[in-house]
């Protein structure tokens, strides 16, 4: 029986997260107490200038990095103090990653690049069929045998998306997915992601410079100097918008 009085669980919760990097003698505070919640099925776009902390924030959610302080809860699990092995498991079971530079392995075909995600997860059953299905979902069903060098930039990024979704993760995190593409191709790639969000119910957390991608989002957040806001911040002025605070 459902307890109606129970507080609704967010899929992703970032609570007052700070991340400080030591660069030799210099300390850089990339996140200064960031707060964020993302619900299941959302398509969240985080915009912000270079150095605002977007990628660092995504790394905390995607299990690539852990915060210096604060809490990160993903799919009900507090991953803040996860060990390296636990983070690996988190990435394998819950997250799909998309990178700006595609990072496809040139010696593998599109289908094999997608299948690599399954091999890493040690889940190789029917991998060729599953990789083909994932490629079909991104509109590359007929290009599985092509090597990255035989694909355009947009197609390469779509292969990277297929690689992220082939494991059927709950969340896909994308770091500047259109940053390396021209405007038109970028839009096509963004549309593919949106379709996956709507048709497959996958939650997307996307950081980008690209404002056009925000049109597809059901939540747009803005990062400035290590903090998350619900409105854009100008570089000169002091933050005026409301900081996003976890409920």
């Amino acid at each position: 029986m459902i307890n109606l009085s129970e507080k609704k669980e967010h899929l992703i919760e970032v609570k007052n997260v700070q991340r400080i990097f030591s660069m030799g003698e210099v300390e850089v505070q990339a996140l200064k107490g960031a707060n964020l919640t993302i619900d299941e099925g959302e398509f969240v776009v985080i915009l912000g200038p270079s150095g605002s902390g977007k990628t660092t924030l995504l790394n905390q959610i995607g299990g690539i990095d852990t915060p210096t302080s604060g809490e990160v809860i993903v799919d009900g699990k507090n991953i803040t103090d996860y060990s390296s092995d636990e983070l690996t498991e988190h990435r394998r079971d819950t997250i799909g990653w998309i990178f700006q530079f595609f990072n496809l392995i040139p010696s593998l075909t599109a289908s094999e690049n997608v299948g690599l995600a399954l091999e890493m997860a040690e889940d190789m059953e029917d991998w060729e069929i599953r990789a083909q299905e994932a490629l079909a979902l991104v509109g590359l069903g007929d290009k599985g045998d092509r090597f990255p060098a035989q694909l355009s930039g947009g197609e390469q990024q779509r292969v990277a998306i297929a690689r992220a979704l082939v494991k059927k993760p709950k969340i896909i995190v994308a770091d500047e997915p259109t940053g390396n593409l021209d405007w038109k191709t970028g839009l096509e790639v963004a549309q593919v992601m949106k379709n996956l969000n709507q048709e497959e119910g996958i939650t997307f957390a996307v950081v980008s410079h690209d404002i056009s991608i925000s049109e597809m989002a059901n939540q747009v957040l803005y990062m400035h100097d290590g903090l998350i806001y619900d409105k854009p911040q100008s570089a000169e002025s002091a933050p005026s918008a409301k900081k996003v605070v976890t409920e």
């Binding site: 690996t88 990435r91 394998r92 997250i95 990653w97 392995i105 995600a117 890493m120 997860a121 494991k167």
Partner: peptide, 10 residues
Amino acid sequence: GVMSSLGGNK
């Protein structure tokens, strides 16, 4: 890095 981000065991 990609293999690792895909959950590959080190």
